[in-house]
Design a protein around this nucleic acid. Structure first.
Lengths: 342, 342
DNA sequence: CTGAAAGCGCTTACAG
DNA sequence: CTGAAAGCGCTTACAG
């Protein structure tokens, strides 16, 4: 805040030129101290700093961005803010960005290609340094275009193969294997998977499905013993999935869910139906959202460090800007064993 | 995307001047059609549009912002993205903003005054049209300053009294009264409130506390029969609060919680301790997050339409920009009765 | 209906 | 260590 010893309100929107004039130096010099570029007497520097404070000078970031062709901002393009995965990830992005002095743009696409495109265009126009994006279905092509000629892009997702964009993700497949192995080792004989319908429709087999199948095969359960149920990515999807699983001729004694939301829906419906969890049915979720610990029984889940994922994404953007390329990264996951699948 | 009939990649970063030259008109005219300002032959217009497409022209929003002194963006400054209240609100803001052709900046302060200040400064620098902010504790003064001389601000919160900034909020106090009345009407004799410690420390008595006390007084329960327990705003806060409530000489048969997170924590701990909900203890939450419906028993809660709240906030920003002032608004809430407090 | 030109507030070679 | 000046890519009175 501007100190204001004489009671006048400070002039609004002082510019670099105003500061320069007030001190009696050129704008060049003021710009130097504002940007900490050194090369300036300590005394000049102090006088400029004092003037900045007195006039309440605050740089016009649009002007700076226009001349630097970059605005010290980064973009985050999500699919759904309501997905429980999102807030912690976004928080990691925001903090990492803010630590670098970057401000964050946020847009949500609902998985729609048109909205994704307009979000990206806007961000390019605003001179973002780079964008972190959860790709909308069937719209990775647009991302490739943007990444090629407009701005650095990091994809959050590892299901996109054969595409020349770096991505940050977690060891989803390994996590799925851990989960299923854990169920098998604890004596379960028939493990069903409740998978997100949309993710399953992706061009490439989703990682969770691969992990599920691998784990089963390794233990001698052939494809005829795999049971995959496609569900909506929601609590209700989990509920419906549970019903569908139990309607099978040979119903499962364990459930591996696409994420915690689905797992919680399934858990709830199981309890409603008087099924004992974990005695009659073990359940494992994915992500490890906080609500896993609010369930009775508490939900076993594969933990993704979403905060860390967000921070890494920002770091990758920076590397991409500085070096022109950056290797994709996959963070480890961790099986958190709780009462729903001990 | 630029159509590209001849196989050449379109030149990167075409400018208004490039388009103008390509068509053989002045930048002024191109600017007109880009901004739909009319006053231009349909034929000229079509040729310009074609050139824009061909050259892949996309306006430089920093340049536009610099000359208009406004960047067609709006800011959202939250306290915590991890608060379950946030995502749905932010989604409402984002959609409403996007419907108006605005892109959204997002910053999170953790309730810290310094971070709030730097978020606001950055947003001013980027020429946001206005900011929607969840005020950090004891930092409303900064908001008043910014609102007075920097940019339109809407506060999300109605606990800030006597301050010349418009706010958007919900009928919190009425909602609290509804909740407590409901408990009383259903025969409960002793209702405790689990309130957020931080909100209670606010300069003004929090709305939920007022509602709680009013409802009790109205039914003849004097202050000596009020039981308020300060807790952290978290699942764990709810758990600790439940224990503390039951440790009272005269333990409650009903709980009114500050929000669903706290209510869920309390519910969980109650079930853990073998207390029957709702038979021995009824519980009512606040906000009505989706997870209320995943509990067993499902949680009764006071619903705030957070999506709507976000949309209204954006609308208020627009009115504030256009008219110079806007009345504060308070949206209605609704008691959603479920099994935890039938 | 359209153009020439100034201006928005910075940064940045280029000089000195 | 510091300055004069061009340039970033738009918008917008002002003319015609």
């Amino acid at each position: 805040m501007a100190t204001n010893t004489n009671g006048r309100t400070p002039p609004e929107n002082a510019t670099l030129a105003d500061v320069a004039e007030h001190v009696g130096v050129s704008a060049r010099t003021v710009s130097r101290v504002v940007n900490n570029q050194g090369g300036c007497t300590a005394e000049t520097r102090d006088r400029i700093l004092a003037a900045i404070d007195e006039l309440g000078y605050r740089p016009n970031l649009m002007a700076r961005g226009l001349s630097k062709r970059r605005s010290d901002t980064i973009g985050l393009v999500s699919i759904a803010m309501l997905d429980p995965f999102f807030p912690e990830f976004a928080d990691g992005v925001e903090r990492a960005a803010s630590d670098l002095g970057r401000t964050m743009f946020l847009a949500s696409t609902g998985g729609d290609r048109v909205r994704q495109l307009s979000a990206l265009k806007s961000m390019v126009g605003h001179g973002v340094e780079g964008a972190i994006v959860f790709p909308a279905a069937h719209a990775v092509g647009d991302l490739v275009d943007f990444a090629a000629k407009e701005m650095p892009i990091i994809i959050v997702n590892d299901d996109v193969q054969g595409v020349r964009i770096s991505s940050v993700s977690a060891e989803i497949q390994a996590g799925a294997e851990m989960a299923v192995n854990h169920l098998l080792r604890s004596g379960r004989k028939r493990v069903a998977a409740l998978l997100d319908r949309d993710a399953r429709n992706a061009p490439r087999p989703a990682r969770r499905e691969l992990g599920y199948r691998n784990a089963l095969e390794t233990k001698g359960f052939g494809p005829d013993q795999h049971l995959i149920i496609d569900v909506d990515n929601s609590l209700e999807g989990g509920r419906v999935g549970l019903d569908e699983a139990l309607a099978q001729p040979n119903p499962p004694d364990a459930l591996f869910a696409y994420n915690d939301l689905i797992a919680i829906g399934a858990l709830q419906r199981a309890l409603d139906r008087g099924i004992s969890v974990p005695d009659d049915l073990a359940i494992v979720g994915f992500d490890d959202i906080e609500m896993c610990q609010a369930m009775t029984p508490m939900l076993t889940s594969v933990r993704i460090d979403r905060d860390q994922l967000g921070r890494v994404a920002v770091d990758m953007i920076r590397t991409l800007v500085e070096e022109g390329s950056v290797p994709s990264r996959r963070l480890p996951v961790e099986l958190v064993v709780r009462a729903s699948a001990p």
